[in-house]
């Protein structure tokens, strides 16, 4: 009997805590389906006839389809190239202890973004690379690649060296051993770091605001611009916020375990 009260107490605390965390999502979703009259109604309406007008507006008037495409290209591209370069590097650091690079990677996570952004902007302007996928993907790799290496080094370290040696005795080359034996075994690590790299890139604002233009503008910049020219169109803004948030929420719900793993790897593992 006492245990039940205790459980009930926890559930009560849970509700008290969860509601403020979740409420902004709930309110965003609700507001995005309201007509302007309902949005500014006092008291706020919980029951109303939902409208898709704001979503139509966001896609037709503000071309969000194009920005979704840009965001996808950028995030997938940055994650792909980060993996391509980061996985071998992580393996080398784990196996051959090249600690200098590990330190560099720590620095990359700590230096303020503006320190990179000024030279990038000048350099990319000279090379006419501002507003191209190249510059935005390169800039996002600076966030993604160090993170991938950071997470993957302990995964490679955990694999016994005998594994590669055995496969090499069997006639596989070192490259073959890396791709066919080691990578599949570190699958969860690859998944964790790719998901986080994707999330970082999808959410990045500061680099994209300077390095993208009309052609390559990503979702965070599109929604920010939307805010600056129509501050009062809260329904439209909430629809845009839903659009940028939904893919990330879906990823978070499906891959919750991996995200938490990657997130704690940053601190607990050092």
């Amino acid at each position: 009997m006492k245990k039940r009260w205790k459980d009930l107490g926890y559930v009560a605390v849970l509700v008290l805590i969860v509601v403020p965390f979740i409420f902004p999502f709930f309110w965003m979703l609700l507001s995005s389906f309201k007509e302007q009259a309902q949005i500014i109604a006092t008291p706020p309406r919980l029951i109303f006839t939902p409208t898709l007008a704001h979503y139509k507006e966001v896609f037709q008037q503000y071309a969000f389809g194009h920005f979704i495409f840009n965001s996808l290209i950028t995030s997938v591209g940055a994650t792909f190239f980060s993996l391509l370069l980061g996985l071998p590097a992580a393996y080398a650091i784990a196996r051959y202890r090249r600690n200098a690079l590990a330190l560099t990677i720590l620095v990359a996570r700590i230096v303020p973004g503006i320190t990179f952004l000024i030279p990038w902007f000048i350099l990319f302007s000279r090379l006419h690379l501002v507003d191209t996928y190249t510059s935005i993907i390169l800039s996002h790799m600076l966030v993604g690649m160090p993170f991938i290496i950071w997470i993957m080094v302990p995964f490679f370290e955990a694999l016994p060296k005998e594994l590669e040696e055995a496969s090499m005795v069997d006639g596989t080359t070192r490259q073959g051993a890396f791709f066919r034996i080691l990578l599949p075994l570190t699958g969860p690590g690859v998944l964790t770091s790719s998901i986080l790299s994707f999330v970082f890139s999808w959410n990045n604002f500061m680099f994209a605001v300077v390095l993208t233009g009309a052609r390559t503008r990503t979702l965070p910049i599109a929604i920010f611009n939307f805010l600056s020219y129509s501050e009062i169109n809260w329904g439209g803004l909430m629809a845009a916020a839903v659009i940028i948030t939904i893919p990330i929420l879906v990823v978070a719900l499906i891959a919750q375990k991996y995200i938490v793993q990657g997130l704690t790897a940053g601190a607990v593992k050092g």
Partner: peptide, 27 residues
């Protein structure tokens, strides 16, 4: 009971884009 729900709920604010979060809170 319900700990898993809390786990998900706690994770969500961390993953959503900062721009989106800022705009929603501004509202």
């Amino acid at each position: 009971p319900g700990r898993a729900v809390l786990g998900v709920a706690v994770l969500l604010p961390w993953v959503i884009p900062r721009v989106a979060a800022s705009i929603v809170w501004k509202w």
